[in-house]
Design a protein around this nucleic acid. Structure first.
Length: 490
RNA sequence: GCCCCGUUAGUGUAGCGGCCCAACACGCCACCCUUUCAAGGUGGAGAUCACGAGUUCGAAUCUCGUACGGGGUACCA
């Protein structure tokens, strides 16, 4: 087995394929990635699929899709090159068996033939006696021959680590500082299951070591099992990596983030009109800070500023509103070309052919809506009227307190004026603005009442992108026809 | 139960012994800008820094205790 020989930063993201990757997991990936990039190291993806019962089909693909979407590229992994593969634990059985044999030979581990049912009963009894439930060392002092015999008979056999009965184990979390555990509180935990696969504890130690992992950045839920891992490193004669434990992410109700808090899977976020850079920016801020006032961060900003000192130690609560705000910020700072491209992709997903219009029009439309959206999903609804006219409801064809007849008159006048304007070439929004403002003044109306009326007629809605520009893009003829439609409604 | 980790405005964070009766951002409110909605600008409300002791001339910052929250205690990861 490899000893840690290099000083190179090598970190890993090691999810288990038991469902869609959650936000918290992705943040762990992000921090690992940022740390690797900051230090010119390697970021590794390893799949921890030692629990075959809980595995869910497609999760590996989703994990990879999520990482790719977020832009967290890994240097080594199941579908990438790397000299320390395979990167899927179920394919590394030999490594674990070797380690188990060494432990067994050295007397640091032993087999146990207690069935799950018997174990369960043991714990029940302990509880009844008011004792803390745990494995009681049933096979700890039995001879190896005896246990081998059970194995031959086909009894289910597990291997357990012979945890010292007393003493302490201490380690230094790079962010939280020193942590000390009493070994007498740790029971002889299973390292090799009856199905021949290792438990997480063993697999993770063996793999982190043979993959030359230098730093383990993982969720806070692992703090209590770190002493188990340290023991394994010691018995295996391996150098442990450094550890940093990350705080958890909760939902608004302070429970672990789940479906109840809106989208929880990264795949759902991908579909929801979020920009990956915005999501990355947001989750970076959950549990970490660049320790200055900057909050809008690019990938580069995150890498450049990433360090353990900026990590927080207490759990944070996911706030969809701030995410949404940040998404808006990133949309606004995005260049038009990219936004147009994204919009086109959305358009192609639309069943209605009318949306599939030339991108020339889009290049004029996008700048108009860019400032007013917080999600890519808001684009289509807000630009729909450019392509498809939905006649406004009778009730919004209004202008202050004017009567239908008066409104009709106003609209007819406008139709005439616009038709005249049509004779001019190169009509711009300034021409339209001048015309409308003059008309409004001549009529002695309030600008918001007058323009409101026109807006509602032309866009079919009370909220829209800027009117003059919209008319320019829509075209005078189309606008006139829409106004005429409205006149007919009145 | 036992072990471990944590606790600064509703939320995310800054703060690392005096500059802090606490700063920035989201959200909220008001005003300004304005053709609607946004965006932007200005201002405001909102925290006895969980609580209690101690150390110190001086504590959000150090120490201890309590409360509360969370994690672990699996042939799950």
């Amino acid at each position: 087995m490899n000893k840690k020989i290099s000083q190179e930063v090598r970190v890993r993201f090691a999810p288990s394929p038991t469902g869609d990757p959650h936000l918290g997991a992705m943040r762990t990936a992000l921090f690992n990635w940022a740390f690797a990039r900051k230090n010119g190291g390697k970021f590794i993806l390893r799949i921890e699929d030692t629990d075959k019962k809980r595995q869910i089909e497609g999760s590996i693909e989703n994990i990879i899709e999520g990482l790719n979407w977020l832009g967290l590229n890994y240097d080594e992994g199941p579908d990438a090159r790397g000299d320390y593969g395979p990167y899927i634990q179920s394919q590394r059985k030999k490594h674990y068996v070797d380690a188990v044999n060494k432990l067994l030979d050295d007397g640091n581990a032993y087999m146990c033939d207690l069935s799950p049912e018997e174990l369960e009963k043991m714990k029940e009894d302990q509880k009844l006696q008011g004792k803390p439930p745990g494995y009681n060392g049933y096979s700890r002092n039995r001879s190896r021959e005896d246990l081998e015999e059970s194995k031959k008979k086909g009894l289910p056999i597990v291997v357990r680590l012979k945890v010292p009965l007393s003493g302490n184990i201490e380690f230094n979390d790079l962010r939280r500082g020193s942590m000390k555990f009493d070994l007498s509180k740790i029971d002889d935990f299973v390292i090799l299951k009856a199905d021949g696969l290792p438990t997480y504890h063993l697999a993770n130690v063996v793999d982190d070591s043979s993959m030359l992992i230098s730093h383990v950045l993982r969720g806070e839920e692992w703090i209590s099992s770190t002493p188990k891992h340290l023991l394994l490193y010691k018995f295996l004669g391996l150098e442990p990596p450094s550890f940093v434990h990350l705080p958890l992410i909760f939902g608004k109700d302070k429970t672990k983030l789940s479906k109840r808090h809106g989208a929880s899977s990264i795949i759902e976020y991908k579909k929801s009109g979020l920009l990956p850079e915005a999501l990355v920016n947001y989750i970076a801020l959950l549990g970490w800070s660049p320790r200055n006032d900057k909050e809008v961060l690019s990938y580069k900003d995150i890498i450049d500023n990433f360090d353990f000192q900026g990590l927080s130690v207490s759990p944070s609560i996911f706030d969809p509103e701030k995410l949404s705000w940040l998404n808006g910020v990133h949309i606004r700072s995005m260049d038009n070309e990219t936004l147009i491209k994204l919009t086109q992709n959305k358009l192609f997903e639309e069943p209605d052919d009318t949306y599939k219009l030339d991108s020339n029009k889009l290049s004029k439309i996008i700048p108009l809506v860019k400032e007013r959206i917080k999600s890519i999903d808001e684009i289509l609804p807000s630009i729909r009227f450019f392509f498809i006219y939905t006649k406004p409801k009778r009730s919004i064809i209004k202008c202050g307190s004017l009567s239908s007849e008066e409104i009709k008159e106003i609209l007819n006048k406008l139709v005439t004026d616009l038709t005249v304007l049509l004779k001019k070439n190169n009509i711009t929004h300034s021409d339209i603005e001048k015309l409308l403002r003059d008309n409004c003044e001549n009529l002695g109306l309030k600008l918001r009442d007058y323009l409101g009326l026109i807006r509602n007629c032309i866009t079919g809605a009370e909220v829209s992108p800027p009117l003059f520009e919209s008319i320019e893009v829509l075209g005078i003829e189309e606008s006139v026809s829409r106004i005429q439609d409205c006149i007919n409604i009145l």
